[in-house]
Write a protein that binds this DNA or RNA. Sequence first.
DNA 1: TTCCTAAATGATACACTATCTCATATGTCA
DNA 2: TGACATATGAGATAGTGTATCATTTAGGAA
Lengths: 154, 154
Amino acid sequence: MSKVNTQMIDEERAKFLRYLTKAGRRVSHGREIVFDQVMRAHGHFTAEELARGCLEKKLKVSRPTVYRVLYDLLEAGVIRETAFGDKHRHFEHVYDEKPHHHAQCIRCHRFIEFPDRKEDEVYHPYLEKQGFKILGHEMHFYGVCRKCQDKEGL
Amino acid sequence: MSKVNTQMIDEERAKFLRYLTKAGRRVSHGREIVFDQVMRAHGHFTAEELARGCLEKKLKVSRPTVYRVLYDLLEAGVIRETAFGDKHRHFEHVYDEKPHHHAQCIRCHRFIEFPDRKEDEVYHPYLEKQGFKILGHEMHFYGVCRKCQDKEGL
DNA sequence: TTCCTAAATGATACACTATCTCATATGTCA
DNA sequence: TGACATATGAGATAGTGTATCATTTAGGAA
Ligand SMILES: [Zn+2]
Ligand SMILES: [Zn+2]
Ligand SMILES: [Zn+2]
Ligand SMILES: [Zn+2]
């Protein structure tokens, strides 16, 4: 773990605590466990993956609580939800991830990731004119990956 | 129903038949029913909504078949999947809806829609080089809408 | 510290979406 | 028409996420 990473995690933790305090909510056992697991997660993860991980590690937290805390973290701005359009809810932390986009195979659901390009900014003027404060964006391609094409002889 | 609409549906049907023929698949009863229902749908719809509709109308098609045909239509390019990040799979037909993207407010979850721009194609070469067969894409912006900014004094 | 109260939690059941299996039906082509 | 591959339906099943509610716990007051 690099120093930068640790420092960023502390900042995220502070952000989370600030949010909880401001909202009159408690710094509970479950929230600390889930926050910790989220920070250890690499790349994107689904609620279910995180919940399963907690259960497998025998952490003292239940599945409903994992889901509840994920929504807390979402509101606190610690994680964001990526809109993949499949039946799972995907999240990733906000710190330490370079902006990137996703292409997902509709057959096997695997992802290809690719860095974002500034051409995306072509949409900014329109949104700003509407008074929309842009926090981020994601491009999502869907299609069929090479493997699945080979498999199905398309 | 306008004449243009009817004509476009015929074109979509032709596209679907072309796809089926080319892929060595059959023009079956179920595929015709589901195609018809999809063309009657307005705006975005989920697989389950369409399936439920078919069952309620007592059409001679089962739920698994509705799902199967939706994937056919997706690959044929008759419908596209929109990535809303909730737990349902959303679709919309390609004809008569201009390709558009969404900006969603993280506070109130409302959408702003805006037309897509060909600058998005900057990502095509990279994906094609990987053998990824692109069926569609969506840009998803997230941020805070004007109303919510006013409300929260951001 | 101890007590009090509201918030948080866990166990469990549940709702819902989507998919799998496999026996049967159906369309294509010879 | 007969043969064969594809498509389908019924039902079971997997998987994700939520509701309920009795119990526990955090955090402030005394
Ligand atoms: Zn990612
Ligand atoms: Zn694939
Ligand atoms: Zn808003
Ligand atoms: Zn739309």
